[in-house]
Amino acid sequence: MRADPERRARLLQMAAGAGFLALAIVLVLIVVNASSGGSGGDTKLEGVVEVDRLLEGIPQQQLVLGETEAPVELFEYGDLQCPVCKGYAEEILPPIIEGMVRQGKVKLAFRNLTIIGEESVAAGAAVLAAGEQGRGWNYLELFYRNQGQENSGYVDDQFLEAIAKRAGVENLAEWNRDRRALIPQVEADTEEARRLGYDATPSFAINTIKGFESIGTPQTTGALEDAISEAAARAAP
């Protein structure tokens, strides 16, 4: 028995419209997704072997690289989108990591100072989450070696996950949960860095038993090494 043919016709018309709309939405989603490139695991990354070799055998705790007993701690305040930081990661810091860090004279600590944009915050949280699994510096170094144009949208889930996989983050589900939860930590670290007077990246500071000292942005490996050596000498008993 049909109680209301008009209502029935209207409902069926609406259902047909919804069907076409659903089909169109699914097609658009697939086309947009297909044009965004391969899966995270397929994203071509530079410097994987180089980073593995650089950091191999050096202990890491969260975002601190080096022996915990090292007498000097070198802080780097950086933004993962910052091209100058990329230059430091590729040119200035590797000799220090291979030398003073590996020898246990200094430990390197990365702190987020996100000044470029929202994508910096997402990247900062991703590196913190990798640090939770002892792969923070692998993530940081690999990110810098694959850095894209600032705020161009390249820092998406796919890119971040590709870095995580190649940086050796073992539990990706946990890393995904952590990076979402650690966004406030990135903002708090940035706030803290600003409170200390930092407003440019990269900025460096040295911490010893004698205290915390800002050293600005030394332009060469040699200048950084000198600053570390002087701080170590001052801290010596």
């Binding site: 259902a15 919804a18 659903a22 089909l23 939405i25 699914v26 997704n33 899966s39």
Partner: peptide, 28 residues
């Protein structure tokens, strides 16, 4: 209930198609 059920299952089906596409072509 008839129309709501249809819309929900249509949305669910559409999203399932998209997820299956992701599994095959993106997540592999």
């Amino acid at each position: 209930a008839r129309f709501g059920g249809f819309l929900i299952s249509l949305s669910g089906f559409g999203y399932s198609v998209f997820l299956t596409y992701l599994e095959i072509f993106k997540i592999e």
